[in-house]
Every structure is written in C-alpha cells, then in structure tokens.
Design a binder for these strands. Structure first.
Lengths: 138, 138
DNA sequence: TTAATAAATGCAATTAAGTTGCAAATATGT
DNA sequence: ACATATTTGCAACTTAATTGCATTTATTAA
C-alpha cells in the first residue's frame, strides 16, 4: 500500500481509481483546481458526477478545502495537516493572480486574528489576496 | 431630486424605478443581499434579468461590492465611499454567521496588510470571517 | 477464498444560477 | 417636444451542480 492509498485509508475512504487519480493530480499541482479542471483531464476515464462526488467526499473528509473567490466557481486545494480531518487549523492565506488566474495556497502566511466587535464569535476565516503572482512578475 | 436619485446621478446612472427601489432596499438592509433575495422581493415588479443587470451596473459603477463566500452564490452590499467609484479603498472585513446565514460588512475593521513572499504584488484583499454574529449570540 | 453488504459509480434527467439577443419602452439632453 | 442612447422585458440558452436509481466494486468477516 503506497502513500496515496494510506492517505485515503486514513480518512476512512475506500480506495478507488478515481480517488487515487484525483488525489495524485492534486498532489502534482501547486495551484487550486476547479471541477472543470478535473473534468477536462479525467472525463475520458470517469463520469462528471463521479468527479463531483469525489470532490465532495474529499471535502467532507478534510483532504481538500474549498477556496471562495468572486468568480463563483469552486476551487479546491489539498489540506496540509493530513491527520486532522475537519479541522480549521490549516488557516492560511490564498493568493489569486489577476494575470494567470491561478489560485495558490500561501501556507507560510497565517491569517491574523482580529478583534471583533462585542458578541461576535469567530470560528474560521478566509483571506484571499489578489494581485500578480511571482511567476507573472518574473 | 432626493438623496437616492442624486446617488445614481453621481455615478452617471440613469434614474429608473428598479434602480431607485433596489438601491433603497440595499440601504434599508444591514446585511448582504443575493440576487435571489432581490428577486423574491421584486419579481412582481421587475424581470429577473433586469435585476441581474441592475446588480451588474451597480457593481461596475462602484455602488455595491461583491462578497465571495464558499456558497458560490453572489452576495452584494453597498459601498461606503460614495464618491470614489472603482476604488479598492473600502477594504473592510466581512462576517458570515453560521447560525442565521447572514453576511455583514464590518466597516470598522480594516484588512491588515501582510508581507507576501518575494515578487508577489498584492492589489486587493478579501477577508471573510465565519462564526456566530452578535444577534445570534444575544 | 469467497460470500455478504455497504459504498461507490455511471447514466439520464433535473434544478439552479447566470447570460445573451433583440424588439419595445423610457430617460436624458437639446 | 424630439432625437437618441440607454434600459427593460421576454424568450431562449449556457453552465454549474444535484438527484434518483440500477449496476458495479471495495471491504469485512466467515
């Protein structure tokens, strides 16, 4: 049993071909992926709906996280802390490049804690910075 | 000519009934509104598409801003700095309540500037904090 | 190793969000 | 009040995502 299979096992997900393939695909990509990205790459092998459901199960089991942006198209990226499912621990900044359109996780940058008005109880946070990325500025 | 009409004039938008009504509706609501919210309220008076286009023109002319969240459903709220169209000046924190689902602008809270990795050039930022809001905690 | 079964998959159909084209109506400046 | 550019309503369409169900497959326990 290889790393990827162990990863799935760990999260109590059955080991299937879609899951192995999509998980590996995520691992090979530094930038966030949309369903459309995956469909483009995997439609010959798997059904659209299966891809949707794979994303949903990864999301529910804490293998990936969803990154909101103003496009309204869901983008996903791998979670860092493999072992901790459902955790909000991995709260890092996301960066969206206005030039190439790619979104990446800046794992090194934590979202600063803010002092909210009275009675507001924060639980999680999402910070998306837009601009031009390192590659596009090179 | 009243305040709302002046507001439209200021942004070089023609004064029409939808615009007056929707703008006033925004002013009367502290929380962000989706197209669906507006459609529910205005569908007897205006066409769905007209409401979409009203939102688009408000957005393009800086009367409202779009608030991304993980739902994928676009939500909008009034901009503060009336006079400065297309500006990214009004960068405040947004709060989404996990209990009542409402999103509000925390105009008092600015988004902190972060030090990005080399060659990354930030232009704008969006911070959404989720938790439970003041009303739901009361 | 195989049989039982719970979960995952593929397909078709459907829902929902948002967009486009165009003719008719309307706001604005002269 | 007129000319004109903008806005509106309607119908059709696109795209993203969801649901139901029959079939297949991964896992567990005998």
């Amino acid at each position: 049993m290889n790393k990827i299979e162990q990863h799935l096992k760990h999260h109590k997900l059955r080991i299937t071909q879609v899951r192995l393939d999509i998980l590996r695909y995520f691992q090979n990509h530094k930038t966030a992926l949309s369903h459309a990205d995956l469909e483009q790459h995997f439609s010959k092998h798997f059904d659209r709906v299966t891809i949707y459901r794979t994303l949903t199960s990864f999301l529910e089991n804490g293998l990936i996280h969803k990154i909101p942006d103003d496009s309204g198209i869901a983008k996903y990226a791998l979670c860092r802390h493999d072992s901790i499912a459902h955790s909000t621990v991995d709260e890092h900044v996301h960066f969206k490049c206005k030039n190439c359109g790619k979104i990446e996780c800046l794992h090194a940058l934590e979202i600063p804690k803010l002092h909210l008005p009275k009675k507001y109880k924060p639980e999680s946070a999402n910070l998306l910075i837009e601009g031009t990325c390192a590659l596009c500025n090179a």
